[in-house]
Write a protein that binds this DNA or RNA. Structure first.
Length: 805
RNA sequence: GCCGGGAUGGCGGAAUUGGUAGACGCGCACGACUCAAAAUCGUGUGUCGAAAGACAUGGGAGUUCGAUUCUCCCUCCCGGCACCA
C-alpha cells in the first residue's frame, strides 16, 4: 500500500472533475433544482481566509449531498470585487484597480480550486465586469424611473480619512466601519434609495421565510417597528392659536401626564420662528437659534457621549396645549429628541419616561403621575398599569385605553419604523458609475439602455478629492457629454454606487450569467430561484440581507423575478478566530493561510478539520494541533480501503453501527451539525477496525456518506475498489431502520435516582422480569437490602429506578 | 440600558419530548514495535479517595423518583442595537 499522498490524489481528482464537468448545472433539466449559495467573496489582497473555507465547505457538503439525492444543484461562485481596499491599494501602488482585482481573483480562484469545492465554474461572475455592472446600472435606472432613487441635500456621515460618505449602517459607534476614523458631518447632495417604501413588506414577509431566529430578530430590530399615536398639540401665543405641533408616542395612555413638549433642533417649526411674517413670534429667538446651531455642529458622538447629560432651551413666548386636559404647557427644544424619528417632536411625560424624567429633574419641570405606582416621585415608572389623574380614564388599564385616548384627543393610530432611506452615492472611483446625466435644460436624465454599460473611464489618479467629489469629476472628457434627450451640453453624474449594489442582485445573475439582453432569462429565473439555502456571516444580516431583499421586492413588483423573497432559507456561520480568541488580522500577524494547510495536510484534512472543530454557528479559535486528529482518521480510512480483504459479510453489530451512522450523518448535514456527523463516522471506523472485517458493499456505503466531507479521498478509494464512475454520481444511501435495531439493550439501574448498575437484556423486557433480574445483581441487592421499595419507575429498554424509603 | 447567544475535564466539544454526564478528537501517562527516535498499535485518563464511595455541567434556590436539560434569582463572556419617544 502506498502512503496517502494528498498532493497527488487531490490534484488528480480536481482535474478529473473539471474534465468531466459533473458539477455543472444545466439551466434546462427534468430534475428538481436545488440552489445553494454562499456569500461571494471580496477578493482581497490577503487571499482566502480560513473562514471562507469553513462556510464554503459547509455548503459544498450540502450541495454534494443534494446532487447524490438526485437534484440538479446550482452551487455558483463569483467575486464581489468593487470596494475600498482595492482602491486604496491602487492608490498606494499606482496600479489600476482592475489589474489588482485580476491578480486577486486569480489567486482566490486557484485557492478555491485547490479545496475541491463543487462550484459550477462556468457561471463565475465579477461585479466589476462591465457586462455585469451594466445590469446593476440598469436596475438602478428602473428604480430611478419609479421614483425610488432621488437626490437629497443632507447631512451625511463623512469619513475624513477615506474621504467618503457613509450610510448610517456603515457608522459604528460614530466611527467609520472600515478604518475606525471618527466620522464627521458634512452637508452634501446624495443619491438616496427609498428603501423605506418597502419597510412594511420587508418586516412582514420575514414571517414567510426560513431564517435562523436570531437573523429574523436582528432584521426586525433594525427595521424597528413600533405602533403608537400621532397627536396634535395646539401652539398658542397669549391664548390665541398660532400653530400646532404633532408628536408621536407609543404611550398615549400617559398623555394626561405630559407636562411639556420638546422639539428637535432640526424641527421645521424652528425655521418658522425666524420668518418675520410668521404668526409665531417667540421671545428668546437668539437663545434658541444659538442652541440649535450648537446642536447641529455636534456630531452624533458628541450628542450621545458628553456623559449623556441632556441639554435644552425653553422656547419662550409660546405655549402648547395638552390636548387631553387643555393645560398650558411649555415648549422646549432639546437635542435628545431626534428629527428623523417619529415626527421630530415629543410630548414629555417625566413621570413615566426615563429621558423626560432626567430632563425634567434637571430643569425643574413638573412631574405628574398618571400611572399608579409606589416609587413615585423618586423615580419614573415605565411599566403600563392603572391610570390615575386622567379624568374619565381613571382606573382603567394602559393597554385598553391607548386607542380610546388617541381617539379622544383626535389623534391617529400609526406604525413607525426606525429604518431610514439608503444613502446610495459614494464619492469614489472603484464602483459602478451612476448612469445619469445632468442637463441644464432637461434636468437629470437617465442614460438610455443602449448606452449601458456606462464604463468607468481610465484615470491617472484614484485619490478622492478634498472637496468631497469623486475622482471622476476631474476627467472633463468623461464628465462633459451630450444630453440623451435634447442633445445639448450636459454633465455626467460623478458619484459611484456603494459596494452593496452589486451584491444586491448577484444571485439572480448566476442563473444566466452570460446573457447580454437581460439581467437573466425569465425561464432560468423561474427554474432556479428562489435560492433554497443561503449561508453567510452574521455581520451581513442587517445590511446585505436587507438591501438585497429590497432590490428583489422591487424587481418582483416589476414582474421581473418570480418570487417575493430571494432566499428561502438563511443560516449563518461562526467566525474563525486566531488562537487567543482574537480576530485574525494582518497587523497582528496571526492569519492562517489555507495554502499551507493544503500543502502539508491536504484539502480533505482542512475541510474535515474545519467541520469538526466545533458547532458551525459558533465562533471558534483556530487550533493547529488538532488537525492531526482528522488527518489520522483519513489515513485509517485509506488503510482500510487499501489493505482489507473485503468479504461479502458484515457482522450484525457492525451493520447496525453502519446504518445508525448513515442516519446520523444524513440528519446532521441538514442541521449543519457537521462536527457530530464526523464524530459518528469516526466511531464507525473504530468499530470496523475492531472487527477487521466489513463487506465491500457496506464499506462503499460508508465512502458515499464520507464523500461530501472528503471528496478526494472518497473518489480515490471508490476507484481503487473498481468503480468506474465518480462517487459523486452515486445515490445517497438510505439508513435501513430494521438493520439499526439490536435485539439486546443495556438497561441502567438507579436506586433513588442514582446510577448503580447496568445490565443487558432482551428488548422489550417487562418490569416484573426486570425486578427479578436486577435483584440478583450484587451492586443492586446491597442497596436494596432491608429497604422497602416504594415505587419502581421503568423507562422501557433504557432505565429502571427503584425508589426506597 | 435593550435585544440575541453562551458558560460542561488540561483543551475543542458531545448529550434536551427530563432518563447511565463527559461521545468523538487533541493532549497526557504507561505498554508493544525499534539499536534509537518518529510514525503506528494497545491500555488508561473528570476531581478527591488505597478502596468502598463521595463530589462534579458558572453561582444560588425550586419542581421531580430522576435536572447539563424545566422555573425563578444572580455573576461573567461574546455578538448586535443604542436618547427610536
Amino acid at each position: 500500500m502506498e502512503n496517502y499522498n494528498h498532493l497527488k490524489i487531490e490534484k488528480k481528482w480536481q482535474k478529473e472533475w473539471e474534465k468531466s464537468g459533473i458539477f455543472k448545472s444545466p439551466s434546462k433539466s427534468k430534475k428538481k433544482k436545488f440552489y445553494s449559495l454562499i456569500e461571494f467573496p471580496y477578493p482581497s489582497g490577503e487571499g482566502l481566509h480560513v473562514g471562507h473555507v469553513r462556510s464554503n465547505t459547509a455548503m459544498d457538503i450540502i450541495s454534494r449531498k443534494r446532487r447524490m439525492e438526485g437534484f440538479n444543484v446550482l452551487y455558483p461562485i463569483g467575486w464581489d470585487a468593487f470596494g475600498l481596499p482595492t482602491e486604496n491599494y491602487a492608490i498606494k501602488t499606482s496600479t489600476p484597480p482592475e489589474i489588482v482585482t485580476k491578480i486577486n481573483t486569480d489567486n482566490f480562484r486557484r485557492q478555491l480550486k485547490s479545496l475541491g469545492f463543487s462550484f459550477d465554474w462556468d457561471r463565475e461572475i465579477n461585479t466589476t465586469d462591465p457586462k455585469y455592472y451594466k445590469w446593476t446600472q440598469w436596475i438602478f435606472l428602473q428604480m430611478y424611473k419609479k421614483g425610488l432613487a432621488y437626490k437629497k441635500k443632507m447631512i451625511i456621515n463623512w469619513c475624513p480619512k477615506d474621504k467618503i460618505g457613509l450610510a448610517n449602517e456603515e457608522v459604528i459607534n460614530g466611527c467609520c466601519e472600515r478604518c475606525g476614523t471618527l466620522v464627521e458631518k458634512k452637508e452634501k447632495e446624495q443619491w438616496m434609495l427609498a428603501i423605506t417604501k418597502y419597510t412594511e413588506r420587508l418586516h412582514k414577509d420575514l414571517d414567510e421565510v426560513d431564517y435562523l431566529p436570531q437573523i429574523k430578530t436582528q432584521q426586525r430590530n433594525w427595521i424597528g417597528k413600533s405602533e403608537g399615536a400621532e397627536i396634535k398639540f395646539k401652539i398658542e401665543k397669549s391664548k390665541v392659536k398660532v400653530g400646532e405641533v404633532e408628536v408621536f408616542t407609543t404611550r398615549p395612555d400617559t398623555i394626561f401626564g405630559a407636562t411639556y413638549v420638546v422639539l428637535s433642533p432640526e424641527h421645521e417649526l424652528i425655521e418658522e420662528f425666524k420668518n418675520q411674517n410668521s404668526k409665531i413670534k417667540i421671545d428668546n429667538l437668539d437663545e434658541v437659534l444659538d442652541y440649535v446651531a450648537g446642536a447641529k455642529k455636534k456630531d452624533d458622538i458628541e450628542r450621545t457621549a458628553e456623559g449623556k447629560e441632556k441639554t435644552g432651551v425653553e422656547i419662550k413666548g409660546i405655549k402648547a396645549i395638552n390636548s387631553a386636559n387643555g393645560e398650558e404647557i411649555p415648549v422646549w427644544v432639546a437635542d435628545y429628541v431626534l428629527v428623523y424619528y417619529g415626527t421630530g417632536a415629543v410630548m414629555a411625560v417625566p413621570a413615566h419616561d426615563e429621558r423626560d424624567f432626567e430632563f425634567a429633574t434637571k430643569y425643574n419641570l413638573p412631574i405628574k403621575e398618571v400611572i399608579k405606582n409606589t416609587s413615585f416621585p423618586d423615580a419614573c415608572f415605565l411599566d403600563e398599569g392603572i391610570l390615575v389623574n386622567s379624568s374619565k380614564f381613571d382606573g382603567r388599564n394602559s393597554e385598553e385605553v391607548k386607542k380610546d385616548i388617541t381617539k379622544f384627543v383626535g389623534g391617529e393610530w400609526v406604525t413607525k419604523f426606525k429604518l431610514r432611506d439608503w444613502v446610495f452615492s459614494r464619492q469614489r472611483y472603484w464602483g459602478e458609475p451612476i448612469p445619469l446625466v445632468h442637463c441644464e435644460k432637461c434636468g437629470t436624465v437617465p442614460l438610455p439602455e443602449k448606452d449601458l454599460p456606462l464604463k468607468l473611464p481610465k484615470v491617472d489618479k484614484y485619490e478622492p478629492t478634498d472637496t468631497g467629489e469623486s475622482p471622476l469629476a476631474n476627467i472633463s472628457k468623461w464628465v462633459n457629454t451630450k444630453c440623451p434627450k435634447c442633445k445639448g451640453n450636459a454633465k455626467r453624474e460623478t458619484d459611484t454606487m456603494p459596494q452593496w449594489a452589486g451584491s444586491s442582485w448577484y444571485y439572480l445573475r448566476y442563473t444566466d450569467p452570460k446573457n447580454n439582453k437581460k439581467f437573466a432569462d425569465p425561464k432560468n429565473l423561474k427554474y432556479f430561484t428562489p435560492v433554497d439555502w443561503y449561508n453567510g456571516g452574521m455581520e451581513h444580516t442587517t445590511l446585505h440581507l436587507l438591501y438585497s431583499r429590497f432590490w428583489h421586492k422591487f424587481l418582483y413588483d416589476l414582474k421581473l423575478v418570480p418570487t417575493k423573497e430571494p432566499y428561502k432559507k438563511r443560516t449563518s456561520h461562526g467566525m474563525i478566530l486566531a488562537g487567543g480568541g482574537e480576530k485574525m488580522s494582518k497587523s497582528k500577524g496571526n492569519v492562517v493561510n489555507p495554502d499551507t494547510i493544503v500543502w502539508t495536510y491536504g484539502a480533505d484534512t482542512l475541510r474535515l478539520y474545519e467541520m469538526f472543530m466545533g458547532p458551525f454557528d459558533q465562533s471558534i479559535s483556530w487550533a493547529e494541533e488538532n488537525i492531526v486528529g482528522v488527518r489520522r482518521f483519513i489515513e485509517r480510512v485509506w488503510k482500510i480501503g487499501n489493505t482489507y480483504d473485503f468479504g461479502n459479510r458484515t457482522s450484525k453489530a457492525l451493520e447496525s453501527v453502519l446504518h445508525k451512522t448513515v442516519k446520523k450523518v444524513s440528519d446532521d448535514i441538514e442541521t449543519m451539525s457537521f462536527n457530530t456527523a464526523i464524530s459518528s463516522m469516526m466511531i464507525l471506523v473504530n468499530e470496523i477496525e475492531k472487527e477487521k472485517k466489513i463487506s465491500k458493499k457496506d464499506f462503499e456505503v460508508f465512502l458515499k456518506i464520507l464523500s461530501p466531507f472528503s471528496p478526494h479521498l472518497s473518489e480515490e478509494l471508490w476507484s481503487i475498489l473498481g468503480n468506474k464512475k465518480s462517487i459523486s454520481l452515486e445515490k445517497w444511501p438510505k439508513a435501513v431502520i430494521s438493520k439499526m435495531e439490536e435485539s439486546e439493550v443495556t438497561i441502567a439501574v438507579q436506586i433513588n435516582g442514582k446510577f448503580r448498575a447496568k445490565f443487558r437484556a432482551k428488548k422489550g423486557v417487562k418490569t416484573s422480569e426486570i425486578e427479578e433480574l436486577v435483584k440478583g445483581l450484587e451492586e443492586v441487592s446491597k442497596w436494596l437490602k432491608g429497604k422497602k421499595i416504594l415505587k419502581v419507575v421503568n423507562i422501557p429498554d433504557i432505565l429502571v429506578n427503584f425508589v426506597t424509603e
